[in-house]
């Protein structure tokens, strides 16, 4: 840490490469929320275990990472998390979860304020996103929770950027539908 100025990401990463605990803690706090929330969306009950496995692999491979921006670091650890999740799915002999959500027949009323007020916790918001189809939920999580751009998200999930945009749009529309349906149900 140099003087009174906030260290840059590159300086923090270099310090972590030298074995600085504090620098690694900074990197952990930079990446762990996104990793944990992403895994909460794609793998509900195994999120913390998979996050722990992810960070074990991050620690082992930290010397190989040489990105200069926090976004690149987030993308890197999220790619590790995604592979952990897919390996876990294969090990447990099951396919990734398929959403049982069915869109409502008609849009809900525009009284959405109550519905928004009910979404007061991060966990409830993640629960709602997890109700989307897996590919849409994953893209929404990566784009808005992990704050990755389209290119990074496309590279991560192995899709074209256009496909990522389409999935993002559909996911957002479906979330809107869910929210309005919930709002209407509450009113009834």
């Amino acid at each position: 840490m140099v003087g009174m100025t906030t260290p840059t990401f590159a300086e923090t990463l270099a310090a972590a490469h030298r074995g600085d605990d504090a620098a690694f803690t900074v990197l952990f706090r930079l990446g762990q929320p996104a990793v944990l929330r992403y895994l909460s969306v794609v793998s509900r009950d195994r999120a913390e275990d998979l996050a722990a496995e992810t960070w074990l692999q991050v620690v082992r491979g930290l010397d190989t990472f040489s990105g200069a921006e926090p976004g690149a670091f987030r993308a890197w650890i999220l790619s590790i998390a995604r592979h952990r999740w897919l390996d876990d799915c294969r090990a447990r002999g099951r396919r990734p979860r398929v959403s049982a959500y069915e869109p409502p027949d008609r849009p809900a009323e525009d009284d959405v304020a109550a519905a928004v007020d009910e979404i007061v916790t991060t966990e409830s918001a993640l629960d709602l996103i997890a109700q989307l189809p897996p590919d849409q939920a994953e893209v929404i999580a990566l784009r808005f929770i992990a704050d990755l751009d389209v290119a990074s998200t496309a590279a991560l999930v192995g899709k074209a950027p256009g496909a990522v945009r389409v999935l993002t749009h559909r996911g957002l529309r479906r979330l809107e539908t869910i929210l309005r349906a919930g709002s209407r149900a509450d009113q009834v």
Binding site: F28, P33, W55, T122, I129
Partner: peptide, 19 residues
Amino acid sequence: LVGGLLMAATAPAEAPLPG
């Protein structure tokens, strides 16, 4: 509605983070 949802989903995490 979706904006509020995403804001809640990306709320700052409270330390200490699990793990």
